[in-house]
Structure formats: C-alpha cells, structure tokens
Amino acid sequence: MHRVLRDKLAIAIFVLPGLAFFVLTFVAPILLSGYYSLTDTLGPGTDVKMIGLDNYLELFHDERFWLALRNALLLGAGFVILQHPVCIAFAVLLDRIGGKAEKWFRTIFFIPCVISVVVISRMWLSLLDPTFGMFNKVLAGIGLSSWQHVWLGDPKTALGSLLGILIWAGFGWGLLFYYAGVKGIPEELYEAARLDGATGLKLHLRITVPLLSPVISVQVTLAIITALKQMETVFLTTNGGPGDSTQFLAVYLYNQAFAASRYGYANAISILFIVVCLIATYLSNQFIRDKSTEY
C-alpha cells in the first residue's frame, strides 16, 4: 500500500537487531559446535586437533547416547499417556464447574508452574528423601510402609519418579492449554449432541476429544520436545544416575563437556541433539497436517 511500509531502512532497523541476536545465540554456536565436534579439544582455549568424524562414529556405538534417547522417548510417552488425558479431563470439568470456582481452581492448579526449577528439584529431593522425606512418611501413615523406597536412588524407580516430578510441575501448563481449547468449543455442539442422546463420557469422546484434536496434536509435539530437551530437573536431582537410568541427552553432553572434559565429543552430541529435535518437530508437524485435514 504505502511507501512508508516499503521503507527499506525501517525494515532493516526492525529486523536486523533480532536477526543479530539470533545469529549470535543460535547460528554462530551451531557452526562453532559443528567445528568443535570434529576435534578432540578438552575445552575452549585448549589445543585443537582435527580428528574428522571420529566423534560421530564413537557416538553411534555409545550405549549411553542411545539410552539417553530411549529415556527421552519413555518420558515423552509417559507425558502423553499419563499427563495429557488427566489434563483434558480436568479442563472439561473446570469448564463445567463455572463461576468463581473456575477462576480460583485454574489459578491454584497453575502455581507449581511459576516456581523455579531449582526450588522444585531441591524440594522433591527432600520430599523423596529416604530418611526424612514426606513421601515415605505419608506411605507409613496410610499403612503402606512396605512401599517405602529410595525413590530417586533405585535404577528401577528413578525414571518413574522423575516423570512424577515433571508431571506435577507441568500439570498447570497442560491444563491451561486444554482449558483454552475447551473454551473454544461452541456450546451449541454439545446441545445438539445431547438432543441426539449422547451424555457423560460418551458426549466428551464424541465432541470434546475430536474438536480438541488440533490442540492435542500441538501438545503432544510439545510434550515430546520437552522430553527430549529435559535437563535442569534431571541435572539437579539424579544427574543421570543411578547408573545411567535417568540419562538424558542434555545432561550427558553437559557432563561430558564440563565434568569429563571431552569438549569435542560433547559438541558432537550437541549437533546430533539439534538434529533429533528438528526431526521430531518435522515428523510431528507432518503428522498434525495429516490429522487436521480429517476434521
């Protein structure tokens, strides 16, 4: 339309700073990471020797790398199977309760989401502590002493416990997104379905779930990305252990870089990590596109 909106100088002033930031924190590091991944350097500022693709070859045979990937997938599956159906159910119930209660409970359920990951991690370490933790005390209190356990210290229960912590911490976000989706469903559709004789669970399986499917697809994608990117909570609670039972890509690369001083190798993990995230995003986008054409 106007000359003003084609002003090249203005466009440059609007776009270049954002782009510069993007280059500084995303493009340049990825390029540098690509370079370091071909070396055996111990850390920035130390000797650099090119070793070609050796790091990548090693990585393909590195069990811990695959284990980290498997754990991310298990965690993602845990989110999708355990957390999301509960979030959807609560979103529907929250919409039904109405009035002041709707607002109050929505606010309360979200509170864990505003608390720092450091506090959440340290708090759960204490809650699950085998000697003074509340969790085992509660189990004893309700007569389930035999269930008492070193939850984060046993390879069998560590990943499950982490999933529990993350579900607790992320429940509010999931609920909020689905709640927003439920709010977008027109009331007339429910009335029409009721006239056709659908009630209760059947009503929601026929109306709510199909109409929420765009939101569900996006949320499932996000859940998988979140699982892949998992770092801080793991780093601050189990740090990948016991054994490698809670190993995750980001934790593994961090410890390889700073604890094991294998900076070059860690950068190779970084590069594959980005590739995995982009592939996961691409695949789920394709999946969403296929799905959304059905409705």
Binding site: P29, L32, L253, S270
Partner: peptide, 27 residues
Amino acid sequence: FFYTVILLGIMIPIHATLLPNFAIFKA
C-alpha cells in the same frame, strides 16, 4: 523466509548451544 528462521529458535534446544555459546561469550 526470515519469519520461519526466527521461529526455528523455538525448536532449537538451548542446551545444545550452551557449550559453543560459552566459548563465544568468553571470547
């Protein structure tokens, strides 16, 4: 094109850019 590029930033994990960023910021 640039819109898509900027949005890629949502998907790229910060943990993957952490190591090289450390080197860049240090320099």
